[in-house]
Design a protein around this nucleic acid. Structure first.
Lengths: 131, 131
DNA sequence: TTTTCATTTCAGATTCTTTTGAAATATCGA
DNA sequence: TCGATATTTCAAAAGAATCTGAAATGAAAA
């Protein structure tokens, strides 16, 4: 709080070409103004965090082939129930998958968002054989 | 090791529609075969991990506007040198940005990969004013 | 109703990531 | 050469994500 600087380049020495183009976009303040808001960045980074795990990507790839119940996913991955449940909850909380109860089972499928992101990751490897 | 099951659906009871479509794609084994390899999944999840932080996304957004030296990035973000350096190193290690020394400064810019991913994140908000 | 089965939840342990402040490096200008 | 400046590196601390096994839930079959 002691010293508020002018948002001009006066205060910090820069390499010439950076200084020039920084001026053209309105200095530090101008640059700052062009950036996405913190809340958007937070949401997007949260999305990426959900995708930042090989097991979860594999689950998405599986569900790109077809909707599946937990027990099949488990059979493919070969991991403990609670571990799988944890990863499913991460994907679900992020809106990438949704589960629908059917009798004793819960059948998970990709949401629209989940489908879009899964394509980003694995191309459409999954849809070759299946459709 | 005690009991190797056949990779057929015989062993696990399933909801009818899952069972049917699972059969059509070759059962557990067929499904497994369609999935991306573990090494690919590992690489891709690592990429997402680099994107899974709001500060790092903001850095990418800044560099989408123009190449910048560390001190400008620091002025915009208002964080400690070492903290910024850490995040830059994460992005650099993942090949999203590259730094080139120029005199006393290091000027970072997006790589081709970095540009592509940054577009995914923020659209091309950055390129409006700048080009 | 009791049992069984598929799945989730929970608490604690573990591991990975991020932050912090101090010290190191390296380049420039005097 | 010296001192200043920009940036990185390091080790320790703090924080967040993940894993584990046991217990809880809730629907269906007996």
């Amino acid at each position: 709080m002691a010293e508020d600087k002018k948002y001009q380049d006066a205060s910090l020495p820069l390499p010439p070409d950076v200084e020039e183009s920084l001026c053209r976009c309105g200095g530090i303040a101008g640059l700052t103004g062009q950036l996405p808001g913190d809340d958007l960045l937070k949401r997007e980074s949260a999305l990426f965090r959900a995708l930042a795990d090989p097991l979860r990507l594999k689950i998405l790839a599986m569900l790109a082939v077809q909707p599946l119940c937990v027990c099949v996913i488990k059979a493919v991955l070969g991991i403990a129930d609670s571990k799988l449940s944890y990863h499913l909850s991460v994907l679900k909380k992020m809106g990438l998958i949704a589960g629908e109860a059917q009798g004793n089972w819960i059948i998970y499928r990709l949401t629209a968002d989940g489908t879009a992101w899964t394509r980003q990751v694995i191309g459409d490897a999954g849809s070759r054989k299946n459709r």
